[in-house]
């Protein structure tokens, strides 16, 4: 019974990284929070990963609003406008 309890509480690292995702989005249930906390208390690998993961999260949130930075030239845009106008007319 105790063994089963421990097995239930101590997730493998693969599943812990999933809980880390949910934590970053504020979507963990009470039990999930507990399981994550217990795992992190004993696993230095996941602790290291959690730190990196939080950092990636911060960067992505900050930089995501950058639209495509590739150069789209005016000619391509003008052509696209032409195609759209054509389609609207024939619609």
């Amino acid at each position: 019974m105790l063994k089963r309890m421990i097995h239930f509480l101590l997730l493998p690292c693969s599943q812990t990284t999933l809980l880390i995702e949910m934590q970053q989005s504020g979507q963990l249930s009470f039990i999930q929070k507990l399981r994550l906390k217990l795992h992190l208390a004993i696993c230095k690998w996941c602790r290291a990963y959690q730190k990196k993961s939080a950092y990636l999260d911060k960067i992505l949130l900050k930089n995501i609003h950058k639209e495509n930075i590739e150069i789209i030239n005016d000619f391509d845009i003008e052509q696209l406008k032409g195609k759209i106008r054509e389609k609207i007319k024939n619609n």
Partner: peptide, 10 residues
């Protein structure tokens, strides 16, 4: 068109 194209390409 351009703003939409940028977002779509992204």
């Amino acid at each position: 068109s351009e703003a939409l194209m940028r977002r779509a390409l992204y």
